[in-house]
Every structure is written in structure tokens, then in C-alpha cells.
Design a protein around this nucleic acid. Structure first.
Lengths: 157, 157
DNA sequence: CCTAACGTTTAAGCCAACTTTAAGGTCAAG
DNA sequence: CTTGACCTTAAAGTTGGCTTAAACGTTAGG
């Protein structure tokens, strides 16, 4: 299979496939005498696997660490470990999200409770002091938590 | 207040504060004849507000759109709107996370169920076909979903 | 008067995960 | 033999949210 077909069959772009090869993520590639890449049929599945793992929240670095390149040699223990750690990560993120949601809900309540007939600055101060007073324990959802859901959507191909 | 003190009091770095000014996020700044920036005391609160909003999942663009620069003039309606949209975003992300967690849990189950006495490749294929067969509806947690929780942690100052 | 600790600017660098661009080689059909 | 669809490469660009560097001015203390 050459790259165009692999791209069509996996749903990824050619550039993305080449990129994965360049970072050592996709090693199942040979060359024709003319320089063209040739892939075995399994490559489709591996790419789908990579995409799925990404979809489950793994970084490419993590995926590379787990994916043996050779489908016959999975490190079960390491894989299970990584999966369990990922579940823990997800649960931590869920907790942060819940916390953030609570904060926002409280803020909505505060704002709704008093229409604009009262001093805004004082109101803002009240709202904020409540938010900060309510133990915003560290970087709640911060740095690496949530990424904007709106404009990031750029699917393959 | 000059920038060093503001940095100390808000917990942000000076470069970050200047950066916020440069993108039009922090407008409450004057200059001394010598060029030094001077800030009113409220700047501390505004910066904390920005950090909190970020922590709640808002991008700097969103924050700029909501923060009027002048504390006396909040657009209540727009703010409420944005907050409600953010809650919806968070809930969508929560759903994706739950879905991803289910997927991973299923995968763990699959792997645990059969120790390494069986053919790995066949097993992998089974596991994956189950994952893909189970309607991995689109980019579940993909593109803009989760960011690694491990190495992103680089807090201010 | 010197030094150390502040402040200023612009520009470039970093991260991940790609995409885009530019400039070219290969190949099958008509 | 030319056209057009394929493939190749290296390098640069993208996004967001900053940090770091370089080169310089200011100010307080001894």
C-alpha cells in the first residue's frame, strides 16, 4: 500500500502519517526502489489505534512508549499500568471540571441574584472575594486542564 | 504600585503582566515620567480574576471579551451568557471524558481477562475491533479534549 | 561615583501536533 | 511527449500562552 491509499483508508492526512514516521511513532514502513513508501495492511489498524489512543487522551509520546511497533510484542504490564494511570488522570480532570462548574454556577447565581440596580464594582468585589475565599485550591482547572472546545475541531483529511 | 510589587502581590510574573497588557487584557496601567508602569491597587484583583477565569477554562480571548477594563461597567447579560456557555462546554467535556474512561476500562478488562499465554496479535486485533466496533463516535476526546496532566505544570513566578 | 536592584524594549524561543509550502522526482495514459 | 496525478524532501508556519534574552535606562544606598 502506498501512502495515498493508507491515508484514504485510515482517514489521516499523508502529512500526518509522514509526521508520525518522522517522530518514530510509525515504524512499519518500507521503500520502493523509487523512494515511495510502502505500508503493510496492518498500518491502517495501527494508525487507527494511534488516533484512538489520542482520542482517549494519550500524548504521542505516551503512545510511542506503549506501542511496540511490532504488533506481536505488547508489554501487557506496562500497558495496563499506563491505562490505569490514564484513568486516574481522567478522574482528576473530572474532579477539576466539577469544581470549576461549581464555581461558575455560584458565580451565575451571584450575578442573577442582583440586577444592575446596585453598584457593580462592589458587587464584583463581593463575587470575587467569594470565589477566592471559597478556597480556589491552587490552579483548579489551570495549566493543562481544559482546552477550548470551540475552535480546535480540525479533523483529519 | 510598580510592576515588581504587582507581580509579588498577584503571584504572576512581570513578563506575564506585561504580556497581558500587550494583548490588551490589562488596560489599567499608567506611566511615570521615567517610563515605569504604575498600577492602581485594583490591578491585583483584576489579575487574580484573569487567573481564576483561566483556571475555570476561559481563554484569554474570551476573558478579554468579558472583562471591560473598567470595573464599573460589566455587561451582565453577556457575562451570564458566556458563563452558561462555559458550563455547557464543561459538560460536553465531562461527557467525552466519561466516554473515554469507559473505553479504557473496557480495554483494561479485555487485557486482564487473558494473560500472555495467548497470541498477542490476535488478542490485540480482538481488543481493537471491539473498541472500534463499539462505535467510537468520532473524535471522542479528541482535538481539544484533554491535555496531559503531567508535564504542563509551570506555575507563575 | 559606583554598584546592585529595579525598570524598559523588541525579538526570539518554547511546547504539541500537525499543516503548508516550495521545489522537485515518478509514472500511467493518451 | 506531454499532462496530470501521484510521490519525495526539508523547512517554515500555525495556535495559545507565555518565557527568555539582549541591550539598555533609572534609582537608592554606601
Amino acid at each position: 500500500m502506498i501512502i495515498g491509499e493508507l491515508a484514504r483508508r485510515s482517514g489521516l492526512t499523508q502529512s500526518r502519517i509522514r509526521f508520525y514516521e518522522s517522530i518514530g511513532l510509525l515504524k512499519m514502513v518500507d521503500r520502493r526502489p523509487n523512494g515511495y513508501r510502502i505500508y503493510p495492511p496492518e498500518a491502517v489498524m495501527v494508525l487507527e489505534m494511534i488516533a484512538t489512543a489520542q482520542a482517549a487522551g494519550f500524548s504521542l509520546d505516551e503512545i510511542r512508549a506503549l506501542l511496540p511497533g511490532d504488533l506481536e510484542q505488547w508489554d501487557h504490564a506496562a500497558l495496563l499500568d499506563a491505562l490505569r494511570r490514564k484513568v486516574a488522570d481522567i478522574e482528576a480532570l473530572e474532579a477539576r471540571l466539577a469544581h470549576g462548574k461549581t464555581q461558575i454556577a455560584a458565580l451565575i447565581g451571584e450575578i442573577e441574584a442582583r440586577p444592575d440596580d446596585i453598584d457593580c464594582a462592589a458587587n464584583a468585589r463581593r463575587v470575587l472575594s467569594r470565589m477566592f475565599g471559597a478556597k480556589t485550591d491552587g490552579p483548579a482547572l489551570a495549566a493543562g486542564g481544559v482546552r477550548r472546545s470551540g475552535k480546535a475541531g480540525r479533523r483529519s483529511a
